[in-house]
Computed example of a mutant assay.
Amino acid sequence: MHLVEKDDQAKHLNSRIEEFLKWSKKKYKFNNRFHVFLLCLGLVSSSFTGYFGLVSTENSVLAGSLGIFTTFLIALQNAFKFNEKSYVYLNLHNDAKNLRDELSYEVNNRSDVINVSNKFKKLKTNGLESLPKESNLESNQNS
């Protein structure tokens, strides 16, 4: 890296950005993988619900139970918005990579370091505020 000749403030900022990159990548992977898992589980459950409901008349209780399970999976996806969160974390991760690169290659003096530091603070604040909120069933019923 080109931070050898830069001051301690730039090195510290670089380490904070690297930690943020690890954290945002971890959050992205979790939300994305969990979303895909719920989606696949919902598709399998929905398929079996249709099969047991249409083909097998003696398994109507099983079909009803699978239908309830499928509804639960859909509600879980809508309540916690794993897909939307994964995109926010991916965008945060990419923006932090851009800041890391700016710090490594475009910073020449202390004021540039402070400018990148302010951008990083703004990225964390605005990015985390843009996360979708979990659905609140009570507020949805009152509207």
Results as ranks from 00 to 15, higher is better:
106 E>T: 08
65 S>N: 14
67 G>V: 14
59 N>M: 05
68 I>D: 13
96 A>K: 06
97 K>Q: 08
85 K>V: 01
89 Y>Q: 01
109 N>A: 06
71 T>L: 14
93 H>W: 07
67 G>M: 10
107 V>R: 13
67 G>T: 05
107 V>L: 11
75 A>M: 06
74 I>E: 14
79 A>I: 08
112 D>Y: 01
110 R>I: 15
99 L>T: 00
60 S>N: 05
86 S>F: 00
105 Y>Q: 12
73 L>I: 06
98 N>P: 03
88 V>D: 14
93 H>F: 15
70 T>H: 10
68 I>P: 09
74 I>G: 11
105 Y>I: 13
60 S>I: 07
89 Y>I: 05
94 N>A: 01
104 S>D: 08
67 G>P: 05
62 L>R: 10
81 K>N: 03
86 S>K: 03
111 S>W: 03
113 V>K: 02
108 N>W: 06
60 S>C: 06
108 N>I: 01
112 D>A: 03
89 Y>G: 00
84 E>S: 02
64 G>N: 08
72 F>M: 13
61 V>C: 10
61 V>G: 13
85 K>E: 00
106 E>F: 14
69 F>P: 07
65 S>D: 13
110 R>E: 09
68 I>E: 03
85 K>M: 01
107 V>P: 07
71 T>D: 09
92 L>D: 00
68 I>L: 14
109 N>S: 08
64 G>Y: 02
77 Q>D: 13
71 T>I: 04
69 F>Y: 11
80 F>Q: 03
88 V>W: 13
63 A>E: 11
66 L>H: 11
96 A>D: 15
76 L>C: 05
112 D>V: 01
78 N>A: 06
107 V>W: 12
76 L>S: 10
66 L>F: 07
101 D>I: 00
74 I>Y: 09
62 L>F: 12
96 A>T: 11
88 V>M: 10
83 N>H: 14
59 N>K: 07
67 G>C: 07
63 A>N: 12
92 L>Q: 05
97 K>G: 07
75 A>G: 14
99 L>F: 00
99 L>M: 00
96 A>Q: 15
111 S>I: 12
90 L>D: 02
81 K>A: 09
112 D>R: 01
60 S>K: 09
81 K>D: 04
97 K>E: 15
63 A>T: 10
65 S>F: 11
93 H>G: 03
93 H>T: 00
91 N>G: 09
71 T>Q: 05
103 L>F: 02
106 E>W: 04
96 A>R: 10
64 G>K: 04
74 I>T: 08
76 L>D: 05
68 I>Y: 13
93 H>E: 03
66 L>N: 11
111 S>V: 08
86 S>R: 07
80 F>Y: 12
111 S>Q: 15
86 S>L: 11
90 L>I: 04
112 D>S: 12
93 H>K: 08
67 G>R: 08
71 T>C: 09
90 L>W: 10
62 L>I: 10
88 V>I: 12
77 Q>C: 07
101 D>H: 03
84 E>A: 06
58 E>F: 04
89 Y>E: 00
112 D>G: 11
109 N>H: 05
79 A>Q: 14
70 T>Y: 05
110 R>L: 15
67 G>L: 11
93 H>Q: 13
102 E>C: 04
102 E>M: 08
91 N>P: 07
112 D>P: 02
78 N>P: 00
98 N>H: 15
89 Y>W: 12
105 Y>W: 14
72 F>N: 07
73 L>N: 11
99 L>W: 00
80 F>V: 04
61 V>Y: 13
